[in-house]
Computed example of a mutant assay.
Amino acid sequence: MLTPILEEIEQKLKLSKSRRDRQTLINVLEVGYVWDILTSRYQTLENTKVFLGIVQDSDLKFLLEQGKKFLTKEIKRLEKICSDFGIPTVKKPAENSLSVFDIEVVSDEYIYTHILAGLQSFLPTLVTAFSHSISSMIRTTFQEFLTEELNLYGNFLEYGMMKGWVKAPPAYRS
């Protein structure tokens, strides 16, 4: 249980310093990962909003709504870090995303496959961000994001297998 103690000490140090002085508490790699993950989360949230306007399957719609809440929570946390440390951010996506897709062409399976690929490709980013962080507060944030993302991925994969949307390789037989 050393991490909460270190985090509390780090938090007290952070609060007693100016923004410029707080910037010495994190390194350039951590700043880059915070910025990169926030930017990715903005893009993912925008895609999720578009997909919510297209998806037909009620279960998938529910999962997308849960994903939207998950993303919004992480975005707020990352925006707070950016504000605390003076990290510039990209422009936030619009609240209401307009769909330019032909709904008949974009199937629920396509949406599912796109989201699964996004989850798969984002996991290494979180692992790398976690492993390169020396600030306990930033590292703990990335660790929590990674744990939640792994759980989300596992559940989303199981859901896709139930629907028959996961492309499984052929069985290996010798």
Rank of each mutant, 00 (worst) to 15 (best):
V106G: 06
N151I: 02
M162H: 15
D57V: 00
P124H: 05
E74W: 13
S58P: 15
G118R: 00
K49E: 02
S40W: 14
L25Q: 08
I115S: 06
T39I: 00
D84N: 01
I5P: 04
T72N: 09
L116D: 04
P170V: 12
T141P: 05
G67W: 04
E104P: 12
L25W: 03
I26F: 06
F130C: 08
A129H: 02
V34C: 00
T72V: 02
N47S: 08
S135F: 02
V90L: 15
L119D: 03
I103L: 13
T128S: 07
Y110H: 10
K167N: 15
E149L: 09
G67C: 08
L126T: 08
R173C: 12
M162W: 08
F51N: 01
L25F: 06
G53S: 11
D36C: 08
T72K: 11
L78T: 01
S97W: 02
V127T: 06
R19S: 01
W35N: 10
F156C: 10
E109K: 09
L150S: 07
P88Y: 09
E148D: 11
V106K: 06
T44F: 13
E8A: 14
E144Q: 12
Q66D: 11
A117V: 03
D59E: 10
T147S: 11
F62W: 09
D59R: 10
D36T: 14
V166S: 01
D59L: 14
S136K: 05
L13Q: 12
K76I: 05
M137F: 02
E8H: 15
G86L: 07
E30G: 07
H132Q: 13
T140N: 12
Y42C: 04
T113K: 13
E95C: 02
Y110T: 03
L15P: 04
H132R: 13
S136N: 07
Y159L: 03
I26W: 00
L123V: 14
F142S: 05
K92D: 05
K163T: 06
L13D: 09
Y172N: 15
V106R: 08
F101A: 11
Y159I: 08
K68T: 10
T125K: 09
E8T: 14
K91N: 15
E149D: 04
L146I: 08
W165E: 02
E79V: 09
S135V: 06
L123H: 04
S97M: 04
S121V: 00
K12Y: 14
L71Y: 11
T140W: 07
K92C: 11
E104I: 14
L150C: 04
R139G: 03
V50K: 01
S83P: 12
G154I: 06
M161G: 07
K49V: 02
L64V: 03
I26K: 03
Q56S: 11
Q120L: 11
L6P: 13
